[in-house]
Design a protein around this nucleic acid. Sequence first.
DNA 1: GGCGAACGATACGGTAGCGTAACGACATTC
DNA 2: GAATGTCGTTACGCTACCGTATCGTTCGCC
Lengths: 116, 116
Amino acid sequence: MPVDLTPSQALGLWHAVTVRQVQDDGRDLTLRQLAILLEIYLVPPPHTVRGLAARLGVTKPVITRALDTMGEQGLATRQRDERDRRNVVIKRTVEGALFLERLGDLIIATGRVQTS
Amino acid sequence: MPVDLTPSQALGLWHAVTVRQVQDDGRDLTLRQLAILLEIYLVPPPHTVRGLAARLGVTKPVITRALDTMGEQGLATRQRDERDRRNVVIKRTVEGALFLERLGDLIIATGRVQTS
DNA sequence: GGCGAACGATACGGTAGCGTAACGACATTC
DNA sequence: GAATGTCGTTACGCTACCGTATCGTTCGCC
């Protein structure tokens, strides 16, 4: 099941999905926040602030702030690591999973339309 | 040349591309700015502030501000419409075209790796 | 010519992001 | 048990974005 996109199709897909995301989503996430969210939900846990910062090439406060915002929106949760209480483990939430599920559906639906 | 993505592959693609975009791009565009950029370069001109605002479901100042920022970065230019001097026509730039070209290549390259 | 509408830009107060630097809590090491 | 190191968070000053409201310019129309 290969993904065989031309450059034009690739950008077209990105275009359509991004526009619909802007239109529909009241959340207005940053690219960084979206990257963090995808990282949390698509990469096996555990996730820490330091780990995410290193993975994305940003500073720790960026992650802390993003988790603050996304926490208020119910997209992720924080939890102290009881084994090493210096660490904070980032947990997934139902709402976050739903958000990504909708995003996945949007991409697929758009891809079908774009290339049909 | 169909795009036959599973939900998992779709999100995986989005994930990898978004993360690399965050890692590599010092510009740190907003989702809205990215949507505007894609709209300008993938939809046939002419583009106006009002048109883009309507298309994306945002207010006019959002477009004005985004064009300010993107103008400083060389990603787009503004030009008065001499036929109707109330209008401003948004023009593409070489740098903007290069940016999108790189994005397209990134998506394709990622898609190949992701699904191989 | 004057009035109203349309367009883009600007002003305003507020919020949220940024990077750098420092901080408190905790673990580790000697 | 005191020093050192490692976490995540907070503080600071700053910049950029937000939405609402208003402004100046320009067009169209009577």
